[in-house]
Design a binder for these strands. Structure first.
Lengths: 173, 173
DNA sequence: CATAAAAGTGAGTAATCACTTACAAATGTA
DNA sequence: TACATTTGTAAGTGATTACTCACTTTTATG
């Protein structure tokens, strides 16, 4: 990975996250990266390839977080850590998540597989705790995570009180 | 509102919701509406104006739903109906909500005011029920609504089990 | 009917789009 | 050193973009 290649990816992520993929031209990416426009196509073939390169990089780090939660053996603690996820997002990764959430709504590119393993392991945890509908419970946790992450990414803050309240409802405090 | 004007709005909503605002050209809207491209600009001034016309129409109907919930006097019933909202969305309004949720992630266009009154009335309901943190509880309901609506809009349908479970957590079943 | 306003068209516009190409500079390897 | 490969650039390409304009058709009103 060349220095300029990294610069292109970083600039593209910035712009895609702020203005959207379709509203960001390759010429703007090149300008921001301080690079000729042609270089983008040399390294990434086309605009879509540039997006894929960004996504692959981000997904790698994200699955890292997910796997650490899946690894937790105590079911209650696993659920608690999953619910805490949106509060633990590093600020440096905000741009990536903003892009992920924005892309969900476009181009039929909706792909949930990244969080599937986590959901499965949450269902197992709820099952171990004797819940009646472990899979639906896992889905609810995911809904909460997505909802809080959305609020945090859009409004800049996520109130810790929300986490407290939801943990209370699961009696995990 | 002319017949062709309505046709333009309907076609634009279809395309904006499916492909995104930025990825949809005015020429495609005109073609889908069976209308000359110039007519779009005659009626709506520019592409942004077309979007605003769509939004105003949708927001009007949405606030109608919200106000019916706000009207409910019994606090428990009000909360229950609010939580049920994403399951009551008429299929004909899917496109509008898809557009709303997609636009949230576009720069500058994020506007939460539409649901603000509902949130306030939910906080009052939680307060009447003696909850410790009524405003945060209302926020959690909103997170749930947004999360379930997102799932329903993207994956097709939201499982009724989710509603059951969450109602159970509030002891509203 | 007369005539003005509104609705609608089709052929433009300059700017920008994603992408290509021909070629130069830097780098790796012998 | 020699030379092939990779990295990089500048100036293009045709297609498409949002939008305009000169014009015709339809509708409303006295």
């Amino acid at each position: 990975m060349t220095e300029k290649q990294e610069k292109i990816i970083w600039s593209a992520l910035e712009l895609f996250a702020e203005f959207g993929f379709d509203a960001t031209s390759t010429s703007k990416v090149a300008k921001k990266a301080g690079v000729s426009e042609g270089l983008i196509f040399r390294h990434f073939e086309n605009k879509e390839g540039l997006l894929m390169a960004i996504m692959n990089q981000g997904i790698e780090r994200a699955t890292g977080y997910f796997n650490e939660i899946i690894k937790i053996n105590d079911p209650a603690e696993r659920i608690k850590q999953a619910l805490s996820l949106p509060f633990l997002i590093d600020e440096s990764e905000n741009r990536f998540w903003k892009l992920i959430y924005a892309l969900k709504w476009q181009r039929g590119s909706y792909d949930d597989s990244m969080a599937d393993e986590l959901k499965k392991s949450l269902a197992e945890a709820f099952n171990a705790l004797g819940y009646d509908h472990p899979y639906a419970e896992a889905e609810l946790v995911q809904v909460f995570i997505d909802g809080v992450a959305t609020e945090a990414l859009l409004k800049g803050k996520a109130s810790e009180q929300l986490l407290e309240i939801i943990l209370n409802k699961y009696r995990l405090t």
